[in-house]
Amino acid sequence: MNITIRNTDRLIDVNGVPARIWEGQTDAGVPVLCLVTRISPQSLDPAAIETFARELTETTPPTDAAVAIPARLIL
């Protein structure tokens, strides 16, 4: 399975750890929410790292689905 996700501007606390909500969908179109606590570019190229850092600051407001996180998602 592959998913495509986009960064939102919403942060929540997950067991004492800040997590950013990312929203997206699978290749089949199933909507998903991801709670991301860490993300790192896997490149040693300074230009790639700079591009990654710049793109990471580009956020969008979350949809209604991401505003009310179901309790079953919080481990």
Results as ranks from 00 to 15, higher is better:
M1Y: 02
E23Y: 03
L11G: 04
V14Y: 05
P62I: 01
Q25L: 08
A48T: 08
A19Q: 00
L56K: 04
P18S: 10
M1K: 05
N2W: 00
C34Q: 09
E55A: 12
E23H: 03
V36T: 12
D9G: 13
I5F: 02
D13M: 11
E23R: 00
C34A: 15
T37N: 08
V14C: 07
Q42V: 12
L33N: 05
R6C: 04
W22V: 03
I21A: 02
L75W: 07
T8Q: 06
D9P: 00
F52C: 08
V36W: 03
I69Q: 03
S40Y: 06
T51F: 08
A19F: 03
N7W: 04
T8P: 06
I49N: 13
T60G: 02
A28R: 12
C34D: 11
I3N: 07
T37L: 05
T63S: 15
C34S: 12
I12K: 07
S40L: 08
E55W: 11
D45S: 14
V17S: 11
T60P: 00
P18A: 09
L44Q: 14
V32P: 00
L35S: 05
E55S: 13
I69S: 03
I12V: 15
R54H: 05
E23T: 04
V30E: 14
P31S: 06
G29A: 09
R38M: 13
Q42L: 15
D45Q: 09
T60H: 04
W22A: 03
I3K: 01
L11I: 11
P61K: 02
R54Q: 10
A48W: 03
M1A: 14
V14H: 06
L73S: 07
T4H: 04
N15T: 10
L33D: 04
A65L: 00
L11Q: 13
P46V: 07
N15V: 12
I5G: 00
D9Y: 01
T8M: 02
T26C: 10
T60R: 08
T51Q: 15
T51P: 01
L35A: 09
Q25S: 15
C34R: 00
A71T: 11
A47C: 02
D9K: 01
W22E: 01
V14G: 03
I5E: 01
R6F: 08
I74F: 03
P31M: 01
M1E: 11
L44V: 09
I39C: 14
R10Q: 12
P41C: 08
Q25D: 14
A71G: 00
P31E: 05
L75R: 12
D27E: 13
A47V: 07
L35F: 07
L11Y: 08
T4E: 07
L73I: 02
Q42A: 15
I12Q: 10
N2M: 05
R54Y: 06
S40R: 14
L44N: 14
A71I: 06
A47D: 13
G24I: 07
E58W: 13
P62S: 12
P70I: 08
T51Y: 09
S43Y: 04
R20A: 10
N15G: 15
